[in-house]
């Protein structure tokens, strides 16, 4: 991608070992501002680990990761300040069950950014409104459907105005009829210019919305390219086999 601007996310030579097993064998990946990069690959290929290294939920073993130019591995980096610039959405939502939807969104605004209550609630309601759930502000997670819970989780990350959002299989835990509402919110984010790195199997969404698709296998990036080419004419046999398996 010819771009003189520095990438929002710049991963170089990333390695991750669990015990004696290396699960990421040197990943290089740059995500440009406003780009939506889609990561696919068989389970165990290391795609979730890659994502979780980007905000150091997993501690990288080697390599460098820069977010908007800042080295997140540097000792001088305040990882908590860094993390609020990197939104993360989990497969299992991970909403706080003892707090209302609005309080789920405002907790970090109040406790990390130190926003006064009224301002935190204003920002929180705006974030809930963006995911179409302003009317559920007072609902507890147990009173929401899976799709609504995931949208609250997106609002929770969004409220902190992150520079990039990481999505770790955001629709995998959802019933099929609830997937669409979450993907619609993600499409809307993309239109709004959010930079996104998405691990998912939603091929149709990737085709419509992704700028680039990355295929990972056994801890390596096997191939990458625009979605049309990746899905119709991948150059690697492993990619072809995986995509054939998915669209079967």
């Amino acid at each position: 991608m010819p771009d003189e601007k520095p990438p929002i996310l710049d991963i170089r030579g990333l390695r991750k070992t669990f015990g004696a097993t290396e699960v990421l064998h040197g990943i290089d990946l740059a995500v440009q501002a406003q780009e939506l990069v889609f990561v696919i690959g068989p389970s165990g290929s290391g795609k979730s680990t890659l994502l979780r290294c980007c905000n150091r939920l997993e501690e990288p073993s080697a390599g460098s990761i820069r977010v908007d130019g800042a080295d997140i591995m540097a000792r001088s980096t305040d990882i908590n300040a860094m993390r609020r610039q990197i939104g993360m959405v989990f497969q299992s939502f991970n909403l706080y069950p003892h707090l209302t939807a609005l309080r789920n969104v405002t907790l970090a605004l109040a406790k990390v950014l130190g926003k006064p209550r009224a301002e935190a609630e204003r920002i929180g309601l705006a974030a809930l409104d963006r995911v179409g759930l302003a009317d559920k502000a007072k609902a507890y997670p147990s009173e929401l459907s899976g799709g609504q819970q995931q949208r609250v989780a997106i609002a929770r990350a969004l409220a902190l105005e992150p520079k990039i959002m990481l999505f770790d299989e955001p629709t995998s835990a959802l019933d099929p009829e609830l997937v669409g509402s979450v993907l619609a919110v993600m499409r809307d984010l993309k239109r709004g210019g959010m930079t996104m790195l998405v691990v998912s199997h939603e091929m149709r969404f990737a085709r419509d919305a992704a700028d680039r698709v990355i295929f990972m296998d056994h801890g390596r990036i096997v191939e990458e390219g625009p979605p049309q080419r990746m899905f119709s004419a991948p150059s690697q046999a492993r990619t072809l086999a995986f995509i054939a398996e998915l669209t079967r």
């Binding site: 908590n80 300040a81 993390r83 609020r84 990197i86 993360m88 989990f90 907790l107 970090a108 990390v112």
Partner: peptide, 11 residues
Amino acid sequence: GQWEAARSTGL
């Protein structure tokens, strides 16, 4: 996941 969600927002 509760820990991870909270830590990912910078808490």
